[in-house]
Design a protein around this nucleic acid. Structure first.
Lengths: 219, 219
DNA sequence: ACATGTATGTTGTTTTTACAACAGAATTGA
DNA sequence: TCAATTCTGTTGTAAAAACAACATACATGT
């Protein structure tokens, strides 16, 4: 198994390939594979490991008591999930992690990361500092999500989300990692109402879209 | 100025009073005072310092383009804010930080915390590990907030929020840190509609409330 | 004590959204 | 290739929330 690309991830940034190899053992690493739709982690269970997506992708989601699904985030290759829980031992997961497609996940044991181990690996502090960066960024992501759903109307939420995507990609044409249902879940609205609103906006010339490819009219 | 209580905060946990005294200088600490309603930090500006509430409290909030205010969180004594931005140098604030009452804030320079300094203070790693905990917890808070606003109806959001408060305090009677307008902003709904829904729930015997003191009917 | 301002609850109207049901397009798998 | 499934857009209806306007209670400072 070739782990060389790990040195490009935020978690292992600043460590060499050799260092990573030795750390993986120290962190009790293991790889698992999932089919699309499979549950990777289930809400309510305490998380002892955090996951790093090697291939594919996963949705962080939650179902309320009435069965409405809400998507909190999407994680792609190189990205971490459940690291929040890994940092707070014993904390039960609030969310489900579901494979969005055929995926491969590297699990790392949290306890080994947080406590400096007796072995030769002196990289804990480096990893913890990296993890802090990641947590901070995830914080920003969550904050943005909250701002997107802060708007009262579907159109307001869409504009908030789409204009950020434009800013993020630096272009007025971009693809989003959601299909309609997922976008609706992410924005916390009804799917058909979302489709409807998109149609209106298209009719008004505000944007064009086909599938998950969007193109905003430039102001 | 007596900083002894700082050793009880999450940030300085595990450090002695003497250590804290010396660290404060190293971190470029400074204290500022604010009246209720004053802006402590403004959205759009890059944050170079993070704040620790010594007394009083602050709201983390955001106004969208239509002027709707959304409250993301409340921070009380001993708690940090803007630490997310402090961890990501140069990142512009997404939110405003507003004094919720007459308050006192200790500012710590982020750059000095993240880079190990040449001085005798060897506590950076300790602080960074603590900061990681804090970030992780804030992450959870934000996630909970998202779950609360995930419900489609006002009642659903109220029940989600109130039942968590009950769980958090371990009692069916508790106070919340919001007035009606702030609670409405936090849950992302209209204030009068919120009052209305509370009345209905009171009429149905689901709960009692006076001001910000709530009492849930036990199932 | 008074005047001013803020916070809360109430009501009626208007707008928006959720919901349900369906049709056509696209995708998947046999 | 065909059948079955999933995804998307459309429509109409019912429900819910936003909004506006107002009354009352409460707090504040002079």
């Amino acid at each position: 198994m070739d782990y060389s690309f790990l040195s490009d991830t935020l978690l292992f940034r600043g460590t060499s390939r050799e260092e990573i190899e030795s750390m993986l053992g120290c962190l009790g690493a293991s790889v698992k594979r999932y089919e699309k739709g499979q549950t990777i982690l289930r809400a309510g269970e305490p998380a002892t490991s955090m996951g790093l997506v090697l291939a594919g992708g996963a949705h962080i989601e939650s179902d309320d008591v009435w069965g409405n699904r809400s998507i909190l985030a999407h994680v792609g290759p190189g990205q971490l999930f459940a690291e929040t829980y890994a940092c707070i031992p014993g904390e039960a997961l609030l969310v489900n992690v579901i494979a969005a497609e055929k995926s491969e996940v590297l699990f790392l044991q949290a306890s080994r990361l947080l406590s400096t181990c007796g072995n030769a690996c002196a990289y804990h502090n480096r990893l913890i500092a990296n993890l802090l960066q990641i947590c901070a960024r995830k914080n920003l992501e969550l904050s943005r999500r909250i701002l997107h759903t802060g708007a009262r109307s579907i159109r307001g939420r869409l504009l908030s989300y789409l204009s950020e995507q434009a800013k993020l990609t630096g272009s007025f044409e971009f693809s989003i990692p959601f299909n309609r249902q997922q976008l609706a879940d992410y924005l916390g609205v009804d799917r058909s109402a979302l489709s409807n609103e998109l149609s209106k906006m298209r009719a008004e010339g505000l944007l064009r879209c086909e599938k998950n490819a969007f193109s905003l009219r430039q102001p």
